[in-house]
Design a binder for these strands. Structure first.
Lengths: 219, 219
DNA sequence: CCTAGCCGTTCAGCTTGCTGTCAGCTAAAG
DNA sequence: CTTTAGCTGACAGCAAGCTGAACGGCTAGG
């Protein structure tokens, strides 16, 4: 993890830099906000550790400007300012955490790890299928031209195929997924839905095996 | 946000529950770990507030079991245990934050908001959505004609959508955010609120997917 | 204490998109 | 070539959803 430490106290700056380097992170140390701006203009960071009292300005204003510009970089505030109102102000300005000096370096490491855990990876694994990205839990599909919406019935059939990649899914298996136990259809409804899936997702998304059923394809 | 508070002290439990309810969250209070397990088996939660000293076990073990089962629900520890080694142990066990009693209720609220933003993947409380500027920390919305006020219910629904851009939020998920454990509605209340959001924020702010739910749009 | 306004909920009538059917065409298999 | 499984455009019905209005409870201000 690449970390920008904005801290004007040389002893504390060095101690924190050494601690996070020993944890395997890549630290850069900026003693002023101007230095910090230079670093940020050059390099993306995974985390910013921000002091509030700096020689060339207030850290809180820096954070506000960062957030106003749309930055999604996590920020932890490390500061001697320990009034509750200042803590709340910092958190509401967009900080992820707020530690009051003097703090324990091992606790700092544990809090950095907690922040990193939250931003690591995607809790929702996406399925990639040709030109499509699919989030099953969120009912979201993204194709080359943006988000694609399926109706409830279309989702059920598409999911049935997605869950059995490479296998043939017969029409009666699909009917079992859609309809209640004793209810049936008397027309070519399944064929119509497959046609609709092809129209929305691409003509190769479903393969037909005549007399047997359907199988997931690659659009 | 649906929040599970695991706290055996009745006075503190009630104070925290009332505070987070006043913020528009939906709290459930479990005085024991057994109660908490029952709640968690019944209902998905967005956040767990966990005391460490409980009558039927140690909160830290509960957290470890939760994480071992693969739970990604954010957990904040609220406890009188204030030794640094215990803080580090809690954070390393998978907690997202650690507050030592007695803590300020407003700071708790600010930290809950920070954890929620982190869980949604973006620590920045400032969001631009089409013609709207939204400050999640201040609960403020600015449109082309100035500030727009939402009622508490309206805000909860809007926030639920904001936290899941691109994803479908079902009506029952919205109900879980609004209503107490055993309370339900028998009419089209959610639809009415969505209609009001559209009236205030623009008709494209919410997209309907019939039979599935709603999704954030761009006004 | 009273009242106006706000908020959450319900209701009813209108709107709209999903679903299933149909018919004619296509394409695969024998 | 024939047969038939499958495909696709079009349409009608119905239920999911939308919105205006009303109601009742609560609260803040006079």
């Amino acid at each position: 993890m690449r970390i920008l430490l904005i801290e004007d106290d040389p002893a504390l700056g060095a101690a924190v830099r050494d601690q996070i380097a020993a944890e395997g992170h890549m630290p850069d140390l900026a003693p002023t906000l101007a230095d910090a701006s230079d670093f940020l203009a050059t390099m993306p960071y995974d985390l910013i550790l921000l002091d509030l009292g700096l020689p060339d300005g207030r850290g809180i204003d820096f954070l506000r400007a960062l957030r106003a510009k749309g930055s999604a970089t996590p920020v932890m505030i490390l500061t001697a300012h320990d009034r509750i109102t200042e803590r709340i102000e910092g958190l509401n300005a967009g900080a992820d955490d707020y530690m009051v000096k003097p703090f324990d370096l091992d606790e700092l490491s544990a809090r950095i790890a907690a922040v990193a855990r939250r931003y690591a990876g995607n809790p929702n694994p996406l399925i990639t299928l040709g030109t499509l990205e699919i989030d099953l839990a969120a009912h979201a599909i993204f194709g080359p031209d943006g988000q694609i919406d399926l109706s409830q019935r279309e989702w059920i059939i598409f999911e049935a195929l997605l869950q059995r990649p490479g296998q043939i899914v017969s029409k009666s298996q699909i009917e079992d997924q859609i309809y209640a136990f004793d209810s049936e259809v008397e027309s070519n409804t399944i064929e119509v839905y497959v046609s609709r899936l092809r129209k929305k997702l691409g003509k190769d998304v479903v393969q037909t095996l005549r007399g047997l059923g359907y199988r997931l394809g690659t659009p």
